[in-house]
Computed example of a mutant assay.
Amino acid sequence: MTSDATAGRRRRGAGITSDATGPRDTTGTSVTEQAVASLDGTADPRLRELLTALIRHLHDFTRETRLTRQEWERAIAFLTVTGQACTGTRQEFILLSDVLGLSTLLETLHQDRAPGATESTVLGPFHMTESPVRELGDDIDLVGGGEPCVVSGRVRAADGTPLPGAVVDVWQADDQGFYDVQQPGVQPAGNGRGLFTADTEGRFWFRTCVPAPYPIPTDGPVGDLLRATGRHPYRPAHIHFIASAEGHTPVTTHIFVAGDEHLDSDAVFAVKESLVQDFAETDDPALAREFGVPNPFRHARFDLVLERSS
């Protein structure tokens, strides 16, 4: 075999074949390299790194799956309607990121936390409005009708030191599984939300109702995706928190209601064992009077533990 023939076979093995007009790229490798080379003038090195990796992964995905033009067109249409579904109170792209596991993956990769610090989890698509400032002990359930509940805890550092004046942002669905932004005109704005400042010992507490499990919105393209893949849309019952304090790294997290049937199949993959809390039925008339709730009531205790900023 001649050296020219050997070289030709090597080219064919690499996706390059020869015909009457010369070598022909059959895998698009040259297109990939041209697209990457087009970034040479990018001033921001991190932007260049991200775009280079994105191009290479997208091109490799296209080659690996032999993506058809029709499938590409459907993907473009899906992304288009996803953007069109976004409003001032709805973020369909975050929802898409959530159901693909990307949001939880991002949290997992960047959770280099101190031992004992509260685990973070996804922000979710409903932190779309500012929580109203409330006093400790206020009731964030402005509608009523749900099972009365008290949530209490302490914001502290990983070494156990209380963090007085820490800010605790809270939001949750009601006892029917809806957030206020999903039911304008039915729920008052700010229902299920509160911005609390911890006391001098880092303590916080508020009244609410036990949240219900709920389906994520399925009336848009993300819902179409779930149906196409045979997945259910439910999230286990939970309450969202963002806790922050001077000199410490904020944490975005949830607490999940123990015993919920969806803990093992959360539609957005956000459940972590350390965040599952017992909303215990409490029969204590004196404590009920102190909190201003009927007896018996449900009581969840949860400390938010922050790590120091580097």
Rank of each mutant, 00 (worst) to 15 (best):
T252E: 08
G83M: 12
L287E: 12
V99W: 00
T253C: 10
F297E: 01
L226H: 01
L226K: 08
E135D: 12
E73L: 15
E281C: 02
D260M: 07
G22M: 12
A37M: 03
V305D: 05
Q183H: 10
V31G: 08
A5I: 11
G202N: 03
E261Y: 01
R289Q: 08
R301K: 14
R193T: 02
T80L: 09
H127K: 09
L304K: 05
L226S: 05
E92I: 02
C149R: 03
A189C: 03
V143T: 12
T82G: 10
Q84E: 12
G190D: 03
D4L: 11
V170W: 01
E130M: 09
T65I: 13
Q91G: 07
T32I: 14
P125G: 10
A243P: 02
E49V: 04
A20P: 00
G153Y: 04
Q111T: 10
T62E: 13
D264K: 02
I94W: 03
T62Y: 09
D98H: 05
A85D: 15
A245M: 01
D169L: 07
D180C: 14
G22W: 13
L109S: 03
R10Y: 08
L47Q: 13
Q91T: 12
A157M: 04
T89L: 13
V81S: 14
A280I: 09
F291M: 05
H110M: 04
D138L: 09
S244C: 07
G292N: 06
T282I: 14
V293G: 01
T27R: 13
